[in-house]
Amino acid sequence: MLTFTIRRLILAVPTLLFISLVIYSLLEFAPGDPMANMPLTIPDEVKQQMREALGVGQPIWISFPKWLYQFFIVEPLVLIDGIFGSTFSEGQQRIISWQTRSPVMDIVAERLPQTLWVVGTAYVVAILIALPIGIYSAYRQYSVFDQAGTFVAMVGYSVPPFFSGVLVIVIFSVNLGWLPSIYDTTLEVVDWETFKLQLKQMIMPVMVLALQITSQISRFMRASMLDNLKQDYVRTARAKGMSEWTVVMVHVLRNSMIPVVTVIALGIPSIFGGAIITEQVFKVNGIGQLLITAIQANDLPTVQTLTFVFAILIVLFNLLADVLYGILDPRIRYD
């Protein structure tokens, strides 16, 4: 397993380089213009000068290696400088956003806390709710609990957040006035009061996001449990006189985790990626909102950098899932 992991990690480097090239060409090729959001009162000649000042429209064989160099050499150096107070990166050009003319990585660092708070909490909450629901639904298939769970999960999944988000805002902010409709990113949790405020402003986005994630994970959990509950080894285990708890929670559950692990591993990069629509609806202004505004403004350096960071996470977490498969089911061999 260790050699497999190392081999995959080494292989990940060319894969990621290839992915970054594909993303870069895609973005270069996609129609769009960083000047699209400028008012029409600014004449075209001026817009052209602004594009030139930004370096828009450089050929890809110049701009892509430059981006690679900045991403893999300059930005890590800046990080090292930040930690140790050294000056390796001095005078080096960092990846600069076209919208804000400031280093992309600084904005990412600024955005990460609120995204992790909201999306991360939603994920944890969702997993904690989804697993028991999925297990119990399968164990008592077609019971009232199962039916209700199915109903809520399917309705929850088919109602998109652009609607459910607004709905909870109308109920809890407008009509009841209990919760704020706009997330305050300047709030710092220092004491009990601010912690309560933070909780209050997190409830709605977390609720909306968790509903979607719970629906998805609980469905996969239930289906996989159902498959395994019918297997011969379950009958054998029960016949041996094992307690029901051990049979279900140890043997069946462990064998049913593979699809669930897959889905969760696919979801974790999206925690860092933020939840684009939910962040927009509640004005959380995290990474998801950064990505969507950058796409709308055709801010290529930001889009490219963010997408590539997600790509790294996707590759890593899929690798992690593969390793977990081997632990969950030791018969799985990769070499």
Partner: peptide
């Protein structure tokens, strides 16, 4: 397994909106 799963990683990483715009184009 290797090639197909790396392709899956690639597709997972592609940003949807620019992809749509390119396909439209």
């Amino acid at each position: 397994d290797g090639p197909l799963m790396r392709m899956t990683d690639l597709f997972l990483a592609l940003p949807l909106l620019p992809l749509l715009l390119v396909m439209m184009l």
